[in-house]
Nucleic acid binder design. Sequence first.
DNA 1: CTGAAAGCGCTAACAT
DNA 2: ATGTTAGCGCTTTCAG
Lengths: 338, 338
Amino acid sequence: MTVTIHDVAREAKVSLRTATRAINNEPHVRKPTRHLVLETAKRLGWRPNSHARNLVRGKTDRLGIVLPDSRNAVFSEIASAIDVRAQTYGYNCFVLHSEGSAEREANFLNLGLDGSVDGLIVLPNFLEANRDLYARLLQERIPLVLRGGPEALPEADILTVDVEHGGYLATRHLLNLGHRHIGILVSEFALGRLYGRLKGYLRAHEEMGVPTRSEYQISSGHRLEEGYQAIRRLLTAQPKISALFCHNDFLAMSVFRAARELGKRIPDDLALIGFDDIDFAKFCEVPLTTLTHPKEMEGQLLADMVCQRIEQPDHPPQQITLRPELIIRESCGYGAPP
Amino acid sequence: MTVTIHDVAREAKVSLRTATRAINNEPHVRKPTRHLVLETAKRLGWRPNSHARNLVRGKTDRLGIVLPDSRNAVFSEIASAIDVRAQTYGYNCFVLHSEGSAEREANFLNLGLDGSVDGLIVLPNFLEANRDLYARLLQERIPLVLRGGPEALPEADILTVDVEHGGYLATRHLLNLGHRHIGILVSEFALGRLYGRLKGYLRAHEEMGVPTRSEYQISSGHRLEEGYQAIRRLLTAQPKISALFCHNDFLAMSVFRAARELGKRIPDDLALIGFDDIDFAKFCEVPLTTLTHPKEMEGQLLADMVCQRIEQPDHPPQQITLRPELIIRESCGYGAPP
DNA sequence: CTGAAAGCGCTAACAT
DNA sequence: ATGTTAGCGCTTTCAG
């Protein structure tokens, strides 16, 4: 039924070896022979079978990118940058969204173990729940690069964004602007790296001698709606809050509506800082002050790291930290505090 | 080097057949035997090889979802809904972003041809450029479902959103509100379905006896920045425009900044309508009036369609059209025209 | 330059 | 309940 390279060879009256040669553009085939094979393949409607091919080659030229959440554009932006770079190494990328499910994340990690991809770049959400799997991946020497989570997996290749520093920069900026009642929204995902923002926030306060209050610190799920509800609650319960540092730009977008409904204007009555510098940050009504790091470079580094690991399995693990920078736009106003 | 199921069988002192049985949870293996095999597999560090498995089974239990653009959340939302539904059939989904490249799209279509996935759900951007490939897919009877583009490929399974109707509804709404100078931004992708919006826009005008002007009709690329520039240009050149129908919510988001910079307020000086009802539409500063169709249902239908095609290859092609509905929020105001 | 033959790791008829 | 055996479709030594 399905036509194999065997059929092509027979039909073209050449050996199997010659057929592969012609088809894969290898040398040592005469032009007319090659042409004949190619023609025959076409005529017969032959098409390569990736499984057979990958099985014998022992590789796939494919990479898996495991993302936590398909809604937040920052992940798409990073994935896109990884993809572009991976392309130059000859790899295609599959993007996989774990969508808040440890089981889904586990499934995707398995794609590394069962040879479906040659390497994995993962933005982990369930480092704890899937601890064994991550360990296995490492032990089996499956090329794996993590974005974040160095404390949890010190022996892996890891790219980290120094979110604590980001939190510090953001908060210091707000304090310098004169704000003394600064709210903070962090993600409820209990990953160490996520609370980094809070650490930076606390450190900045301490450094400036400004007291902090736990009532100003809240968390929410990763969905826009959840962020919106949490922020609305915070702003309602703590009317003194004049500035808000939001876990990421995505959730920060939900502040606009909450603020408006409570009769607060951004930036006049409420200063707002996000994190990530997603595209929307530039084009929302009041362009968002935020923390950024070059996402093209991040993607590039991540791709480089897996590819390097693939080529040199024995290379000692590499850990790179990216420092975010503050991008001042308009959402914190320019001037004095309320 | 790599441990195979063969090794496991030998080590457990059972036959190959029994080993597979145990491992794949098939019946006709005694408990202790099964346990022994599983233990041995674990001890030896055996892991299944997906290529070998898929090669012999002739299927992968995987679906490919080809998306035009990773930035626009509407695609993620649809993909996510497809994924959820496909899960219930036992399929995993790979999402693939063609990102405005016909070649990338072609690459992904090839995953269907080479057996990497059992079926393909594609939101096509390059139906023309990849015409041959689509035809091939159909001819080879690879399960394929398209979202949009029925004119181009009448013999395929297709789910269409009636964007013309959407354009009509949006424009009529604006006209009913009293607007007489309505701008429209459409995507520059020359797919038939995309210009549907414009058709609906024109039809609504005609029906109400309101003249249209080509100066009010512009197009832009799919990036936020491009939308922003196009809109800024339009609004600057045509100050009479009091309402804007935007190709999609994603691009509509860029209107907020453009309007603000030109001293126009939404909805007071500029009414705005989008398309898609992405999450952001609800939570932007002025919740967006838009066209919607249930994306959960859309994803569900798309998944059902491929799965059905996989199960019944001979089923006649199915074409389903979804009608968008107008969701009135706040971006068009409530009252009279300017 | 071309060909014969040996697998890659797994599943599944077909026995026993 | 378990074992034997023949491939799935392809690449790749190794000989000619």
